[in-house]
């Protein structure tokens, strides 16, 4: 395994971003706004439609339902555990992938993207099949996983972790490797340089990865449906609630829960924007030396 020495050289986003100059480019800019605006308008229309469909009373009633309160509690617990597990794994993988050349690196790179490119339903099916193998069936006799709460966490983790790995790999790649090298000449071994220099520099990226993993886990449904089932008050997370409420025709409750999830996702994404903005500023100042 040998260290990678690539350093970032592309201009920062702030440098490449331009204000709109409505001069001779007016038609071109109008076309861009029109094309992009179609999508943005559709997004806003969807949110507005949900908001107008429901009332504060529906929302309040939904939040009072024991099933939905259970789903909120399980979602919060499983997403938080998934986030912690994802960081536990994504920090070392991201650092290794960003800093070292080793045999099988290209294969590992492709493998790590599988949960991103595969339909989530297939992840759930693969987990279900994996837990039909003899060793894991033996494990399940003492520690039930399939169709129990651990399966919810595992299904969320398998998908969310891939996004955390991607984010952290980019984060570590953007940190100037010279910083670690200088720390090593000052008396650190590689582990000390990692703890004292790299991890603090990666803090905004770690927060971004955590928020992305949390938001991704919150919205996960396909693998949970297959691997955990959709049992009320047992493996019911918020997307399951939307599915179950829809299936019995309670559209108001489904929309209320959807809005709750949408609100959580917006907050999470705003946090990601804030933290990644800080991260890029940090990286930019590293580049400028």
């Amino acid at each position: 395994m040998s260290p990678r020495s690539d350093t970032p050289s592309s201009p920062s986003i702030d440098e490449s971003r331009r204000g709109l100059d409505l001069g001779s480019d007016r038609r071109f800019l109008a076309a861009l706004i029109l094309l992009g605006g179609t999508y943005v308008s559709l997004l806003l229309a969807m949110v507005a439609a949900d908001l107008f469909y429901t009332t504060p009373g529906h929302l309040w009633h939904a939040l009072g339902s024991p099933e939905i309160r259970y789903a909120i509690r399980l979602s919060l617990l499983s997403c938080t555990l998934t986030t912690l597990l994802s960081l536990w794994v994504a920090v070392p993988i991201g650092y290794l992938m960003a800093r070292f050349e080793f045999p099988g690196r290209a294969f590992l790179d492709a493998l790590l993207d599988i949960p991103i490119v595969l339909p989530p339903l297939v992840i759930g099916l693969s987990l279900l099949i994996l837990f039909q193998t003899a060793p894991l069936r033996a494990l399940e006799t003492v520690f039930p996983v399939t169709y129990a709460v651990p399966s919810v966490i595992l299904a969320q983790f398998m998908v969310a972790c891939a996004f955390a790995v991607r984010t952290l790999r980019t984060t570590f790649a953007q940190i100037n490797p010279r910083q670690e090298q200088v720390a090593m000449t000052l008396g650190c071994n590689r582990a000390q340089a990692f703890w004292r220099v790299v991890l603090p520099a990666a803090r905004p990226g770690i927060l971004t990865a955590a928020t992305l993993a949390w938001a991704r886990a919150l919205g996960e449904f396909g693998p949970i449906l297959v691997f955990s089932g959709a049992t009320r008050m047992k493996t019911e997370v918020l997307p399951t609630t939307v599915f179950l409420e829809l299936s019995v025709g309670r559209l108001e409750a489904a929309v209320a829960v959807s809005l709750l999830m949408m609100g959580s996702a917006v907050v999470a994404l705003l946090l990601v924007r804030t933290w990644s903005g800080t991260g890029l500023a940090g990286v930019s100042s590293l580049r400028n030396g």
Binding site: Q179, M184, C188, N189
Partner: peptide
């Protein structure tokens, strides 16, 4: 290892640690 060679290194860009103050750099 690098830390036991008795060499101080100053790279082109300084490679300062963005989360540390000047005092913490001098005492690192």
């Amino acid at each position: 290892p690098p830390g036991q060679r008795g060499i101080g290194l100053v790279p082109q860009d300084g490679a300062l640690f963005d989360h540390l103050t000047v005092r913490q750099h001098l005492e690192f």
